[in-house]
Design a protein around this nucleic acid. Structure first.
Lengths: 369, 369
DNA sequence: TGTTAGCACTCAGATATATAGAGTGCTAAC
DNA sequence: GTTAGCACTCTATATATCTGAGTGCTAACA
């Protein structure tokens, strides 16, 4: 079965109505709500189809329909496409934000203000990760032959953080080849950060490495590992509006609320979210990530949706903003809010010289390709 | 009516049973529970008396009794007296704490660990205020005559924080007298902190001020105000175990829980608690403060009890630990926990030279009296 | 005078039953 | 393809009934 435009309209109508009420939506409601001018009976037929497609369900036989995770996903995807085309501005909002940002001197306070503002504005729970350096640089790489089929790989990054890792080989390797690889990797990678090591550079190195290109992959993985671990370890996260979850009956139930609050307090899962968002961002997503229901890794958030966006203060300083609400959250508004805030932050720090206490030793990055 | 020892025993039994169950306690339960060997009928008579004294109430006609705020207060007061006499040690617990403290280098992390430990240990919600200097010093005091019946009082403390305040006089004052007062106040108070200005010093100054001793009072109030305000403004508070409130049905109700969470997040009321605790401490209390139900200023905590203790890292660095739970919390255990933790903190920082980044410019305090 | 057994009474909470209404699926007609 | 009509389902709400924990009071007892 296909999802024609009329079905999509009906799905939208169901989701939007459900967003407001939180109650199952019946066919008669849709019949009146939309400008499709169809009778409730027709809507019922369409709804039956939408149910078959797995986009909506009935909580029980004689109830209206509510969207499934898949339904929300559909809705959000279309929303994102729409927004990409529109590229809307939201000027005046951004002005407010900029003002707030300008008035705040300490980074920590700014972050707290940002989450508070967003929580008040959206009526959901919000989080923000303090910007951390995504530009820890590779200092030194060493491959040592343990035996003809095994290499020990040692990677050292800024601050003398060391990670080592054993690489198993399919074929024997000679001392000379190891020497060549060491030279290659060090000349090409030393002084570079995660962001600097792009696909062009990688394929270039692999080409030079010839038959041992798979070793390059393993070395790169180790580099990614250690830099990630280093930056994630000390990640600071601020949250706000935890009490907002009580505004949504589907989350306010004691058991669920307790676990959610606990998750917000522990922050481990939030760190995961931040990590994931930044990874997605690195992989070329447009910057707004949406996790719906079961798409969240943490059990306590299976009834929630999380929308995240990472912001960039330049010079490799990067963090993530997130909004946590019920699955029936107002995705459109939330996404707009995040986009605006992201833009405001990026903007504000383009003018001001980034963070007060940050040393500006911007290095010239070798431009390959 | 008097509260004889038997009534007190019964009250204790009711409170302790209610602590465990959270349900109204009936006469038969008490009859079996205590070693008084009295029939339920007798207990009923006694309970009736306790109710008349306002120490317990029935939620409804045919229910058992639950303690009132006054009942808890009674219980807690007797507990404190008992503990004062006993002066128990709790050695092994303290050893655990000391270990934890020794292992932690950064103050912020230590505080977080402390609240987490306490929350896990007590199953209540916990808070801690970061130690702040109670030793901001008076830099300069100036009294200027606006007219014969009004003085302008300006107080400057470390960091050039200024507070001014108009003092109304009952009688006229001469320029000469103002000059003398200025000299007196500056010579005696400059360079002193709140802690340094003790009752001996105060009475001494008043004596010298003679007929204008009331002005001294007002000046001292202003000094206290500005130093307090300065230190409170930047007070950092960490909380933990917010989700524990869901363990107690009387707090877990949506409305109440939401407001409590909000209070914990905003932290303003917690700051009030810290302030109040430290004031009480300054006034010579033994160090453990208990706020029961309505005794809390914040509405969201009217169903809670809060137990606080301030700790002292030496050199004027002081902070407060607090435990927030239902009114039927296990006061005895909580108070012991706080005492132990307080002792551990005080102890640990007596050995180590206080806080890493703290400049040690201990000044010789003029010793009057 | 304090203690206790006995009994009628109260009331919250659990359980069972009836009712209303929102909403569906299906059929037959347009 | 659309719609009106109708039987059917199931939740939520209201209502009545029952149960038991617990009380207060009285009268008898030590």
């Amino acid at each position: 079965m296909e999802l024609d435009s009329r079905k999509a309209t009906i799905l939208d109508a169901i989701i939007q109505t459900y967003m407001e009420t939180g109650e199952p939506v019946g066919s008669r409601t849709i019949s009146k709500y939309t400008d499709l001018h169809l009778s409730s009976a027709t809507i019922r037929n369409e709804m039956s189809d939408l149910e078959e497609l797995g986009l909506i369900v009935q909580p029980h036989t004689s109830a209206g329909r509510i969207p499934t995770d898949k339904g929300y996903r559909f809705y959000v995807n279309r929303l994102q496409e729409k927004q990409k085309k529109e590229e809307e501005t939201a000027q005046q909002e951004q002005a407010v934000n900029s003002l707030m940002i300008a008035r705040t001197s300490r980074m920590e306070e700014l972050l707290k203000k940002v989450v508070q503002y967003l929580a008040a504005n959206t009526q959901y729970t919000t989080m923000i990760s303090a910007p951390s350096y995504k530009r820890n640089k590779v200092k030194f790489i060493q491959l040592s032959k343990l035996n003809p089929r095994q290499l020990l790989n040692v990677v050292v990054i800024d601050g003398n953080i060391v990670k080592n890792h054993i690489i198993d080989l399919k074929d024997d390797i000679t001392d000379e080849q190891v020497l060549k690889l060491n030279l290659l990797l060090n000349t090409r990678l030393n002084g570079l950060s995660l962001a600097d090591i792009n696909l062009g550079l990688i394929s270039n190195i692999k080409e030079e490495a010839g038959e041992h290109s798979s070793i390059v992959n393993e070395v790169l993985d180790t580099i990614a590992d250690v830099i990630r671990a280093e930056t994630d370890e000390n990640m600071e996260i601020y949250t706000s509006g935890a009490n907002n979850i009580f505004k949504y009956p589907e989350l306010a139930d004691g058991q669920k609320a307790s676990r959610l609050i606990s998750t917000l307090e522990t922050k481990d899962s939030l760190k995961e979210l931040v990590k994931d968002t930044e990874e997605q961002e690195a992989n070329g997503s447009d910057g707004i990530q949406v996790y719906i229901g079961d798409e969240n890794s943490d059990d306590s958030m299976k009834d929630c949706s999380v929308v995240t966006a990472s912001y960039d203060l330049g010079e490799g300083l990067q963090g993530t903003i997130g909004i946590i609400g019920p699955k029936r959250m107002d995705y459109e508004r939330v996404m707009e809010n995040l986009k605006t805030m992201k833009a405001s932050l990026n903007e504000a720090f383009k003018k001001q010289p980034a963070i007060p206490d940050h040393k500006k030793e911007r290095e010239v990055v070798p431009d390959i390709e």
